[in-house]
């Protein structure tokens, strides 16, 4: 949203906590359009959908069958249907070399503004992503009409370097698309929820950014996706939180002046020492990979 003078103004973010159908893109497009409609009537400026929102999560051999290039007309049509509202969707991206990526597209004004490919593919325990997907190679912030942003997909956010790099690159809103399975029932709240809420608050606070975490709902072969999407402000306060174990749409205000105020009070971002990180990374790289690296 264009600010008055140079001062960027507050805008509204929406989290579309949907339960996508596995492998049924048509049905999922219809679901997206319903939430787009609702979000538009709620005055949302940017609507976030979860990881692989157009396809469902545990695709296995369906991966190749539901893949599309980032230039697919479907994505442009979704953006057109959203009108003035920006939208982030999750999909299986196919590149010209026929690799498949777990990707997120930032759509605005009928086109794809930025596409992030999941860089960290969990392949352990209940996860098997690297069997089906190629890993993304880039972590970068990008400009939008609503300010600088960074995209992460689920496991990306479990590697602290990713949100750190996005924040250093100028992102003031960190968007996490997630298909997070719920597990751990021995505590007062769901184990997965505790962990995610801890990460979201830590990143928001440490990097002086808004964190918008959109997790899906629904079941795939007995695995539950617990929802609980939330927006956390740079003071680590929860601005909005969706229900757990149901579909939901939550809307929150993102105010760049809150980012400014948090960075004025606690100027961690200003005081970051990139040269230390750079030097130490070079040293660690030599230690791990040897002198020739």
């Amino acid at each position: 949203m264009t600010g008055v003078g140079d001062r960027p103004q507050a805008w509204r973010i929406g989290l579309a906590q949907i339960a996508p159908a596995l492998g049924d893109v048509d049905r999922n497009v219809a679901l997206h359009l319903r939430f787009v409609e609702q979000a538009r009537s709620a005055g949302v400026d940017l609507l976030i959908f979860p990881e692989l929102s157009l396809t469902g999560y545990n695709l296995q051999d369906l991966t190749a069958e539901v893949a599309m290039p980032a230039s697919a007309p479907l994505l442009r049509k979704l953006s057109q249907a959203a009108g003035p509202m920006d939208v982030v969707v999750g999909f299986v991206e196919e590149d010209r070399d026929f690799r498949f990526y777990n990707s997120a597209a930032y759509l605005s004004g009928g086109s794809v503004v930025y596409c992030h490919r999941k860089a960290y593919l969990p392949t352990y325990g209940m996860f098997d992503e690297a069997r089906y997907f190629a890993a993304g190679q880039r972590v970068a912030a990008f400009e939008t009409r609503l300010g600088p942003m960074g995209l992460m997909i689920c496991e990306d956010a479990w590697h602290a370097s990713v949100p750190w790099l996005l924040a250093q690159d100028g992102a003031q809103t960190l968007i996490i698309l997630s298909s997070g399975p719920g597990r751990g029932v021995l505590g007062p709240s769901l184990g997965s929820a505790e962990t995610w809420y801890l990460l979201n608050r830590a990143y928001a606070h440490l990097f002086g950014v808004y964190v918008a975490y959109c997790n899906r709902y629904g079941f795939e072969d007995g695995v539950n996706f617990w929802g609980g999407s939330e927006v956390v402000d740079p003071f680590a306060a929860v601005v909005a939180q969706a229900d757990q174990f149901s579909e939901d749409l939550v809307v929150a205000e993102v105010d760049p002046q809150v980012v400014r105020r948090s960075r004025t009070i606690t100027p961690l971002h200003r005081d970051e020492r990139l040269e230390i990180a750079w030097n130490e990374l070079m040293r660690i790289r030599r230690r791990v990979w040897g002198e020739q690296a």
């Binding site: 159908a21 596995l22 492998g23 049924d24 296995q60 051999d61 369906l62 795939e220 072969d221």
Partner: peptide
Amino acid sequence: DFRYLRDWGA
């Protein structure tokens, strides 16, 4: 190596 969930398309 015919890998689909039971919830395929459901």
